[in-house]
Amino acid sequence: MLGKLLKYDMRSLRRILLPLVLGAPAVALLCAMALRLTIALSIAESQNPAFIALTMTTSLFVTVSIIAVIASPVVAVIFIMMHFYRSLYSDEGYLTFTLPLKTHDILNSKIISGVVWVVISSVSFLASGAIIVMLGTTTDTLLNTGVLQVLSELAKEMLFGAPASAYAVIMCVNAVSSQVFLITTLALSITIGSIISKKHKALSGVAIYYLLNSASSFLSGTVSFLFTLAAFNGSENFAALTYTTMSAPLVGIIFNFGLSAAAYIACCYLMKNRLNLE
C-alpha cells in the first residue's frame, strides 16, 4: 500500500515540480548567454547609447535569472509543503485519511516523496549554478577552462583521494540528512498548525515551523559550541582544528537524523490520535 500511495504522491509532485527543475537549468542557460554578452559588451567599452541600453538589459536579465535560479529550491519546498497540506488537511484529506492505510504509511509516503523532490531540486539548482559559472564567465572559449580545471581537480580529489572522498561522502549524507530534517520539521509544523488553528491552518504551520527551526538552530549552535570546546580542550593546536572540521558534519548528521526521528514520531502520533478534519 505504501508503494501505491508513493506512486500517486510522486506523480502529483512531478506534475508540479518537473517544470521547475527543468526550468531552472534552462533559465541558467539563457542567463549564461546573457552574461557572456554583458561581459563582451563591457570589454568593448562603447559609449554608443544602443550598446549601453543593451548592456543594461542583459545585466537586468542576468540579475533576475540568477534570483530565479536561487529561488527555485525554495519554491520547490513551498510546493512540496502545499502538496502535503492540501492532500492531508484540506478537502483532499477526506480521501487520504479514509484510505485503508496505516498512519505511518501515509506519512512515510509524503516524507519520502518530499525528500526525493527536494534532492532533485537541489541537484537542479547546483547544475544551474554550474551552467552559469562554466558557460557565462568566459567569452573566449565555450567553457571557462579555469573553473573547469579547479572543479575537475576537486572532483578527482574527492573521488580518489582517501580523506577527501570520505569527507565528500560525509558531506553528501549531511546534505541529505538536512533535507530529511527540513521535510519532517515542516510536516510536523503543518500538522500542529492544522490541529491548533481552525481558520489559518497553513499560516499557523509556518509560524510553528519558525519556532521549531529557531529552537533547533539554538540547540545545534549549543551542541557545536560544546563540541568545539571539548575538541580543543583549552589548547589551540592544528590537530584539534582538523578533527573539529572533519567531525562537525558527522555531528550534524546525527543531530539531523535524531531530530528528524523525533519530529516524525510526534507527527505520526498527532495524525493518529489528534486528527480533526473539521
Partner: peptide, 14 residues
C-alpha cells in the same frame, strides 16, 4: 476503512 465507504459533503478528489 477497508470496509467503510464514506461520501463526504464536499469534493475530496483532486
Amino acid at each position: 476503512r477497508s470496509f467503510v465507504s464514506y461520501l463526504p459533503e464536499r469534493t475530496y478528489l483532486s
